[in-house]
Write a protein that binds this DNA or RNA. Structure first.
Lengths: 298, 298
DNA sequence: ATTTGGCTATAACCGATGGCTATGGACGTT
DNA sequence: AACGTCCATAGCCATCGGTTATAGCCAAAT
């Protein structure tokens, strides 16, 4: 018997019933209008009776739809409650999230608010750039936000954000005159680098992937964003930086420019491959993965 | 937020919690053990906490599992009730099912019991072999059980059963001596045929598909199973017949033998392609489709 | 101590589902 | 008549939910 519903579909229905307008309801639900249309049709097909009467000018509930609506709301709400109740029946679980400074993108806030509300304990752990695993290596963290590539084997990642690499230059720098920079013009500059201990990520931000094996010239090594921009402003070198971070760290003595011909940087949620605890999986699942290739934006 | 559950998963959980044994619970649920294992793990992952403690000797509920169990039962039951209530809020829908005699296989019973219980009105309409669409053509039926091929354009089918074609012979017939018959030995026999009005299905049961275009020899045309076997017993011809029907229509003066080298016959549920009423779709969906090719049995 | 048997997990595969973008088609409005 | 609004359809792709086959674990039995 095909009697079980996905509560998601009931939720879709309740929202649609509230607005009686597919396009609007789809927006509220953060899905496309055709997706909603299709799901509702599928729901009607599964139930065996129509829920809505699609008229030329308006959409109205059928008698069955009217009967279903309040009960559907109850079910969705009841489930929410049930979930919370069940969760709190177990021992309180504390998830430690490792983050390096300069990750930004209010991911911290996301992590904290979203899960604190739902009865979890989230503990943020700020780690220095010297620990490329952000605490995953020594067990100090359960998950971490990191720039790829992965610093060590045995870790798995879900890419959350993919964005172009820009370059930070001192205001006086000749290349600062152009609105966009070729990496070729940049390759022989002195670079502000992450510490050696940072591992593969250091190489990535030195654009080792675009140098054909030639060694970059290192101006200075730094361990914090403040250091970095101080060094750049002082003319000790230039540095690659993610696009959004460029917008975030504005200083009068430093300018940011997009760099052509560089693969985008990927910010990922990382955890240990052998860590199968459902709490970790649930945390990870709560963050939507970035689309794989070049996304269709529109 | 990934908060919505599929009620099916809750149902799986309740059954598993009842037996505390994956293999047994999977059997009760009519799914394979790995499927259950995977679904439960996925559920735990989605919820963010473990439901069961899989120990070497036994499976036990975690505190969260214990907390979830009774409420999960309630939710599943509540949905059932909700569904019924919503259905009966609409005008009673009567679905007319066209059937030819000799379809058999307790499909009628299936159709009637299954849906009468759930508050539908099912009206069976027995049609003669003269109407190959079993009432779909003139709107007298909403759905019909028919042997393929489809008698007319504009109809869609879901194959329910696929079974070998046998041949019915009078007891004295020389071919009746062998346990199995080659169609080549049968091709030049006189055949008991469906009426011309039956269309493509007539050709199918004359095995036009195995004759390379040569015309069959028609002994007599009949319009009911009784006619058919009377004719065969009287030596007016032989007839092809589906395997299960062969077992069903046993008479002392007629024998049934499997025929080699014939494609199987397909019994299908048929409805109008442009009929998108959810009631029809739900009825259709309630009958599992036959696997496409040679099925993996075991 | 090794084998056997019972039970759950994993792997590889496959069709159906659920999302997307782009486009069509019905209908009211201008 | 042309346009705008809104739902449906088409075509595409990743994920899901099922399958069979097989591995791995542990206790009982040889």
């Amino acid at each position: 018997m095909a009697m079980d519903v996905h509560l998601r579909d009931l939720r879709y229905f309740t929202v649609l019933a509230e607005h009686l307008h597919f396009t609007v309801a789809a927006q509220k639900l953060y899905i496309s209008q055709p997706a909603l249309s299709k799901q509702i049709r599928a729901l009607e097909r599964q139930l065996g009776f129509p829920l809505l009467d699609r008229r030329p000018r308006e959409v109205v509930l059928t008698p069955q739809g009217q009967a279903l609506l309040p009960r559907a709301r109850e079910l969705v709400a009841a489930w929410q409650e049930t979930w919370q109740a069940a969760r709190s029946a177990g021992p309180t679980f504390t998830l430690t999230v490792g983050m390096q400074t300069a990750v930004g993108r209010n991911l911290q806030r996301e992590a904290l608010t979203r899960f604190r509300d739902e009865g979890w304990r989230i503990s943020l752990r700020l780690v220095s750039w010297e620990d490329p695993t952000a605490g995953l290596g020594d067990g100090g963290s359960d998950v971490a936000f990191l720039w790829l590539p992965l610093p060590a084997p045995g870790l798995v990642s879900r890419t959350l954000i993919r964005e172009p690499r820009w370059v930070s230059l001192p205001v006086g720098h000749p290349l600062a005159a152009k609105p966009e920079v070729d990496f070729a013009d940049l390759a022989d500059e002195a670079f502000v680098a992450l510490p050696r201990a940072a591992g593969p990520v250091r190489e990535f931000w030195l654009a080792a992937d675009a140098r054909d094996g030639r060694e970059p010239r290192i101006g200075i090594e730094v361990t914090s964003p403040a250091d970095t921009f101080e060094a750049i402003a002082s003319g000790l070198g230039v540095a690659l930086i993610a696009e959004k971070n460029a917008q975030l760290y504005q200083r009068p003595d430093v300018v940011h420019r997009p760099v052509r011909d560089l693969a985008p940087a990927e910010l990922a949620l990382v955890w240990r491959a052998n860590d199968t605890r459902p709490e970790v999986a649930a945390f990870v699942a709560a963050f939507p993965a970035a689309p794989s290739g070049a996304a269709g934006s529109q």
